[in-house]
């Protein structure tokens, strides 16, 4: 899932300082699971902003709504009635949701309440780690299910660098060397020979190097 974290409340307040009424839109997708922009976080942010503004003698009226997803047009369309009389929309979604709202509500000031951090998962409740670099062509079958693109600090594709010491990366003793993990796992699986197979250079045009990407499934398109 997409992992995001809320911006400081003061930063969000500054973005809407000239507004009297705002709509705060949470998202029931990834940001609910990573506890950054779900229904609860939306209410907490609304309350924080109201308290702040009341203390400044400049009360703020808030409307809150949590969309099923902000990255699908039909769920964004459900906001039409709520947006009419607001001065701004605060999105508690990832960067995708903010852009979907900005595209639909062209005459509204749409601001992000979250910083979109990475694609990852939770290790324990309240702790998330980056796991996927969105490179566009998965190579996990060759690396024992461990992604060297995002879990190696240098995204090296052909083994560890000289900074690998006792299984740790030179950037921090808390960061595992991805290539040590890959080697250990492939060894345990008896597949070390797979690491010796020749691999052509990675096609980075399938990643961000190729510009904004699209995925198309004509069979599921309606009309």
């Amino acid at each position: 899932m997409i992992i995001a974290q809320q911006k400081p409340v003061k930063d969000i307040a500054a973005m809407i300082s000239d507004c009297k009424k705002v709509l705060l839109v949470g998202c029931a997708g990834c940001v609910t699971v990573c506890l950054a922009g779900g229904e609860k976080e939306t209410e907490v942010l609304a309350s924080s902003l109201r308290i702040m503004r009341k203390m400044e003698d400049n009360p703020l009226e808030t409307v809150t709504y949590t969309a099923t997803r902000q990255c699908d047009p039909e769920y964004v369309a459900a906001l039409d009635n709520l947006t009419r009389d607001v001065d701004a929309i605060v999105s508690l979604a990832c960067g995708v949701g903010v852009q979907y709202l900005a595209e639909r509500f062209t005459d509204k000031w749409v601001v992000p309440a979250l910083d979109t951090k990475f694609i990852g998962g939770s290790t324990v409740h309240g702790n998330w780690e980056e796991k996927c670099g969105l490179c566009g062509e998965c190579i996990l079958h060759r690396t024992g299910g461990i992604c060297p693109i995002i879990r190696c600090s240098k995204s090296i594709l052909n083994g560890p660098c000289g900074g690998s010491q006792y299984g740790k990366c030179e950037i921090s003793k808390d960061v595992d060397c991805a290539w040590q993990l890959i080697y250990d796992r492939m060894k345990a699986l008896g597949k070390l020979d797979k690491l010796m197979e020749f691999q052509p250079p990675k096609d980075w045009s399938k990643s961000r190097d190729g510009g904004p990407r699209k995925a198309v499934r004509e069979d599921v398109m309606i009309d």
């Binding site: 409340v9 003061k10 307040a13 907490v44 924080s48 308290i51 203390m55």
Partner: peptide
């Protein structure tokens, strides 16, 4: 923490 952050 939130109350401190918003100056309350």
């Amino acid at each position: 923490k939130i109350l401190d952050e918003i100056g309350f």
